[in-house]
């Protein structure tokens, strides 16, 4: 079963257009949403979340249009927007105690459990946490309200290799029971080699491939053996003689 289905998503900006983006997030999958900077990854995720208004297309949550089930959709997802520090001067426990008021499924025992597992000190302020710990804190909040889909926008950007490795291991553990899924946008493809089961590749606002990791490798076998090789090969633009003046 697909948790999330995105079909024909369109968003037109003066200098950029998201063109009929379609892909699915099956239950138990880690979907890597890849593309270079400015390809449209964040715009797609923001359109899914309703942060921007798409000019067309539909987003379905468990088969139902999210416009008709916005509350239940948002109650069942956890969102990590990479590089954004919410309430940097507030303690984690304060943010958690406010956040839990919005979620009927909030489980305090789970929150305490994940704080312990991720070595998070709830009495610390957000700006006292490292970048990796901030991502873990947001994941702890998401898991504490039993989110079945985590939408992560560039969560590993700016993290050191060890923290990134820890997070990819964590992602595998989250989906291990097959009931939760992760939609994970990144341009650090080596992270996806370790954990993704599906890949959606977006270039210049259009999806050029969406499917399992194996199907992605097969489709671009002539472009390289690793995700990074494939993306560099597909995306690279040669500088012509007039580029440098």
């Amino acid at each position: 079963m697909n948790l999330l289905e995105v079909e024909g998503l369109r968003k037109i900006y003066p200098a950029f257009t998201l063109q009929d983006v379609s892909f699915v997030v099956p239950e138990g999958a880690i979907v890597g949403f890849i593309g270079r900077n400015g390809a449209g990854k964040s715009t797609t995720l923001k359109s899914i979340l309703g942060l921007v208004h798409p000019d067309g297309g539909t987003v379905r949550w468990r088969g139902e249009d999210v416009k008709d089930c916005e509350k239940s959709f948002k109650e069942n997802i956890g969102v990590v927007l990479g590089g954004i520090d919410f309430y940097p001067k507030k303690k984690l426990n304060t943010i958690a105690s406010v956040t839990k008021m919005f979620y009927p499924n909030w489980d305090d025992a789970k929150y305490q459990h994940y704080c312990k597992v991720f070595a998070l000190d709830g009495e610390k302020r957000v700006d006292q946490l490292s970048s990796g710990m901030k991502v873990k804190a947001l994941i702890a909040l998401a898991l504490s309200h039993n989110a079945s889909l985590l939408i992560l926008d560039e969560p590993t950007s700016g993290l050191d290799p060890v923290s990134r490795d820890e997070l990819t291991e964590l992602f595998r553990a989250i989906v291990a029971d097959g009931t939760r899924s992760i939609l994970f946008s990144t341009h650090i493809t080596s992270d996806l080699e370790k954990c993704a089961s599906h890949i959606t590749f977006i270039k210049d606002g259009a999806v050029i491939h969406s499917g399992t990791l194996d199907s992605f490798r097969s489709a671009f076998a002539d472009r390289g053996s690793t995700l990074e090789d494939i993306i560099v090969s597909v995306e690279r633009r040669e500088l012509d003689e007039s580029a440098i003046i």
């Binding site: 942060l51 948002k74 956040t99």
Partner: peptide, 15 residues
């Protein structure tokens, strides 16, 4: 400054 709008936008509440 604390990105309250972004935080609120992903909560299960209407805009």
């Amino acid at each position: 400054e604390q990105r309250d709008a972004d935080f609120s936008a992903v909560l299960p509440v209407r805009k």
